[in-house]
Design a protein around this nucleic acid. Structure first.
Lengths: 194, 194
DNA sequence: AGAAAAATCTTTACAGCGTCAAGATGGGGC
DNA sequence: GCCCCATCTTGACGCTGTAAAGATTTTTCT
């Protein structure tokens, strides 16, 4: 019975999908709620019944983004050696992967005020991503400063590359690019203790 | 004398100042051209005669931002030792200083599509900041990868702190904060070649 | 079953936005 | 002194988000 339920079907999911497409095409700053409604084939006021307002929709989308963010890191981690160092490195590469694959969503999650981080769902998703990083750093014997260092390089690389400001790095073929990014990430890892 | 003149006198400068205040108060995403005009005490269509549209005003503001960005770094550099290593470290600290002092302007410069980087003035100002960094890295014997590494940490630290996501770091007293940031920055410096 | 209630979506309306076009104003060149 | 033109204002257009009220469908209750 999960097929065509009410007038539209599962409008909430359809709106989220439409919103993601809108975001990818027009960016955070060009995002329009009415345009999203049009994409989903409903009236412009329909979204208000599933998300209170535009901010609510973007908040839900950001939460979904953080969950996929962890998935992207997980994909890299699954291909890496099981030792803590290789796993943290994989997470860093996944961080960059995500930013390059979904730059607008990345910007919504990290460089926008439109998503409401006080929302429990978004807060939980965001913190899950943070705790994942901290756990990995701890497994390497690192402290809070180490976590800040690793997060900062990964985030800086991702943000600059998503904005297209590290062209020399992005011009490299995939494997060479990964190697260069890995080398940069490793500089900020907690120092090897004996 | 300077009361109500039909010809404002220096409206262009007044609009830039008003736009900066608007940006600081409402952020890039809440920025309104009509509100800026109101701040400057002028009709809503007046800005169009000095800047073609909202993007033009934000572009000019971003260019001004990059010049002040270099000034902020210069202030740190002037207080640092003259050796290349201390100078690059000072530039990194200045990078963070700027982001914390003017988070909305920082976001306009690095995390927005509203400023038009094809504009010659903005392009020149932006490249000047970039070349400053590259020059400092070269003076340390570093290459392009080293420049990307240093830029990434500095930018990551600045962006995350401006967004308030590195609270443990920002909670520290100023000197301790500087020391922690400096320690993180140094990890990505070009390796000392004996 | 039928009626009442709840959930979902549409329609209508309003204020604010950016921008274009046309009118008002005053300073500078002749 | 006169005219021109840069400067600024007024008015209008289509877009935006959101609130309120009506329409339609589903669920629940008896």
């Amino acid at each position: 019975m999960t097929g065509k339920k009410y007038h539209h079907g599962d409008l909430r999911a359809a709106l989220l999908a439409a919103a993601e497409a809108e975001l990818a095409e027009r960016g955070v700053e060009g995002f329009s709620l009415r345009s999203v409604a049009k994409r989903a084939g409903v009236s412009h006021a329909a979204p208000a019944h599933h998300f209170t307002d535009a901010g609510g929709l973007l908040t839900a989308l950001a939460a979904e983004g953080f969950r996929r963010f962890l998935d992207t890191q997980g994909a890299r981690e699954a291909q890496a050696a099981p030792d803590p160092r290789a796993q943290l490195l994989a997470a860093g590469l996944g961080y960059v992967d995500f930013a390059l694959a979904r730059p607008a969503l990345f910007r919504l999650m990290f460089g926008s005020d439109r998503a409401e981080f006080a929302d429990p769902e978004l807060s939980a998703a965001s913190e899950a991503a943070y705790f994942h990083l901290v756990g990995q750093v701890r497994a390497l014997g690192g402290n809070d400063t180490d976590a800040a260092a690793v997060w900062s390089v990964a985030h800086g690389l991702a943000d600059l590359m998503a904005a297209g400001r590290l062209k020399p790095l992005q011009a490299l073929p995939p494997e060479a690019r990964d190697a260069a990014v890995a080398g940069i990430l490793l500089r900020s890892f907690p120092p090897k203790n004996g």
